[in-house]
């Protein structure tokens, strides 16, 4: 498959409006018409763009469920692009045309499919990558165990990634003998007043065992309080 020829001639695309090529590209149009209706939705890469715009809705690190449906559709689209690309290449070869120099509609059709495929790939990867960054942040915020409601928002591979990342971070922190997940804000006072959010029972703090009852207020070391605060078991008491 002489794709090199396609990519080296990429600059030619500048002089060709992609829409012109799309209009001549009847095969692909027919194929997708069954799934999408409007002209706009039939545009290549539209679904991939939708996938990426979902990332923007993950505000406040509130992760949304992995969009399997849309994701698979984009994958399918990518494979369809490849199929179309291959068909055109084979056709050109059968016609005995030199792929390096010929610039007919099959050539530009193939080029468009190649570029659309690559664009879909980038969108898919950025969707997965950006989600993996949120998954990493969860490890920093919540520790090695994910609550069930978050678990179900991740897909299989993301759960595995979380576990691997958690192990990785854990073994790094062991190797330098330092817990990096605490102490995230510059300390103003070594002690902090906290309110207990729930009955926690006996807790070992500063080598002393203390009973933390709901709504009770304690003065404790900031370093010890921080991990409990980030887990939502305590809150800083400012009143």
């Amino acid at each position: 498959m002489p794709l090199e020829a396609v990519i080296t001639n990429c600059y030619i695309l500048v002089s060709v409006s992609p829409l012109d090529v799309l209009r001549t590209d009847h095969t692909f149009g027919k194929h997708t018409r069954t799934r999408t209706q409007t002209e706009e939705e039939r545009m290549f890469g539209r679904r991939a763009a939708q996938l990426c715009s979902e990332l923007a809705q993950n505000d406040d690190d509130r992760l949304r469920r992995f969009d399997n449906d849309l994701f698979d559709q984009v994958i399918e689209e990518a494979n369809e692009h490849y199929h179309q690309l291959e068909t055109r290449m084979v056709k050109m070869q059968q016609e005995g045309l030199d792929i390096e120099t010929t610039q007919n509609r099959d050539y530009f059709g193939a080029l468009i499919h190649h570029l659309s495929l690559v664009r879909n790939k980038r969108c898919l990867m950025s969707y997965v990558y950006n989600r993996s960054q949120s998954v990493q942040r969860l490890r920093w915020q919540l520790g090695a165990v994910l609550p069930a409601d978050l678990q179900e928002k991740l897909n299989f591979s993301e759960k595995e990634f979380f576990k691997n990342y958690s192990d990785l971070l854990g073994s790094y922190m062991t190797s330098i003998d330092l817990d990096l997940t605490v102490d995230t804000t510059p300390p103003k006072d070594p002690y902090i007043q906290v309110r207990v959010m729930d009955d926690l029972g006996e807790v070992l703090l500063d080598d002393q065992s203390t009973t933390l009852l709901r709504n009770s207020i304690h003065l404790m070391k900031r370093t010890e309080a921080e991990s409990l605060i980030s887990q939502g078991l305590l809150e800083e008491f400012t009143g």
């Binding site: 498959m1 990519i7 994958i75 990518a78 494979n79 190649h114 997965v128 990785l168």
Partner: peptide, 30 residues
């Protein structure tokens, strides 16, 4: 870190893409 990210990427995206487009480092083999 690269290892686990690569594994994750391969499982979710790269292995499902057509041959020639499966590299994490390159858009396409071309």
């Amino acid at each position: 870190y690269i290892d686990i990210l690569q594994k994750h990427m391969e499982q979710t995206v790269l292995s499902k893409l057509p041959f020639g487009y499966q590299s994490m480092l390159r858009q396409a083999t071309s």
